[in-house]
Design a binder for these strands. Sequence first.
DNA 1: CAGTGGTCTAGACCACGGT
DNA 2: CCGTGGTCTAGACCACTGG
Lengths: 248, 248
Amino acid sequence: MTRASSSPALAQTDQRLPLHARVKDDLIRRVRANEWGSTTPLPPESALAEEYGISVGTLRRVLAELAAEGLLERHQGRGTYVRRATFQHSLFRFFRMHGGTGQTPGSRILARNTQDAPAEVAKALNVEESSPVLHLHRLRLWDDTPFLVEDIWLPLPQFQPIANIALDELGSLLYPEYESRIGLIIGSATEELSVTQAPGEQAALLNCQAGDPLVRINRIARTHTGDVAEYRESYGLASSFRYQVEIN
Amino acid sequence: MTRASSSPALAQTDQRLPLHARVKDDLIRRVRANEWGSTTPLPPESALAEEYGISVGTLRRVLAELAAEGLLERHQGRGTYVRRATFQHSLFRFFRMHGGTGQTPGSRILARNTQDAPAEVAKALNVEESSPVLHLHRLRLWDDTPFLVEDIWLPLPQFQPIANIALDELGSLLYPEYESRIGLIIGSATEELSVTQAPGEQAALLNCQAGDPLVRINRIARTHTGDVAEYRESYGLASSFRYQVEIN
DNA sequence: CAGTGGTCTAGACCACGGT
DNA sequence: CCGTGGTCTAGACCACTGG
């Protein structure tokens, strides 16, 4: 049996690429387009292979790669599922809290207002300068001790629901709120670390001297489709900063 | 043809593990044992598959995994090679030099002496406290401007050749020197970042004020077999520190 | 040109999860 | 028990490298 043309699903991919690469690109596209939620499994290998008109072995190779890259989760006997990002604890990769048996991370929103996006924020959010954005000023606590000051900017009107609800209804983690109230799922983020000196306001909040060194983390968070959804600047005490890297 | 027992090479591996895992473990062992240098290729797929008594497809899967993990390099038409770590530029991942078109990284050794290992160094190098170690004090330059102060400790007598040669014979990169003069190849490293304040000596060398914030990088470098070969503390100006992370 | 790794197929059998 | 993914095989053909 000769296969005159490839599967319709692959029509838009670069014909010069090997089959497995084209199938991989298309599967990534479909995952990003939310074709399968994180609770419904992808079709079984045999069905997907037939759909693409390729052998099961080739399809398996693609799924294995996507699982290795963290986009999918595979479970023998259960199926293949889209994996949701879980970087709730990313800040705790950077800051080591000393002691504290009752480890209770907390969050207190100090201010919430609407602003015209400053140049830096507009650039990060990829919106027009001076377009309206929602600004949150937040303190994060460890065992009731403040260890991080955050400024968060969100594009409007997309995030209007976050601007409207009562402050005490917002949980201590924001990303689940985005998901439940706006249906927006954060899929990836880029963080840039640098060292600055504490201005007076931050120093007061963090219980340190003005001019003490702080670690600044600038985070640009994106949806699965790559659209920027949030820009965040976090400041923490440099003295509690500790980060480990493996090099190979 | 029935295969009553597995290949002799796999005798020592856990029989309950799948074939591909056992072959992988054995290949890692052989690479670590330096069975192939970085210039001679591994045997071709067909030969290795026959040696292990497995099919080419299974062997290919193992080699692909090892290549993805960075242990091997594969080149169509040329062969499969052991990959040498190349983290010469790791420090430049952390520090962004401003300007400077004539980009000339340099190195000046300020001191070389033999010490009894201090507690911290002994612990990092995994040797007895107060056992003899070689200590190097070094300044690293960018466009003739110092940007990094380093203290390096090496276990003796293993590194005696580095202690004996003339200082001006040491190149600006140390790892190639270890390889050519001692036959020791650095395979991986762990780095830990933290922020400190500049003591007077470092401040003078880096052209800053005592008490200015510095980024400290503690590196423990290992051979392919996992033995600690070097402990290094590097200090750089926090103002030129910048590091980017992707989260998924 | 010979030899290498890269792609792709078609199938057998096993191990696990849930009904 | 059925359906899922996991393991493993045997082989055809292609694409690249080097002499």
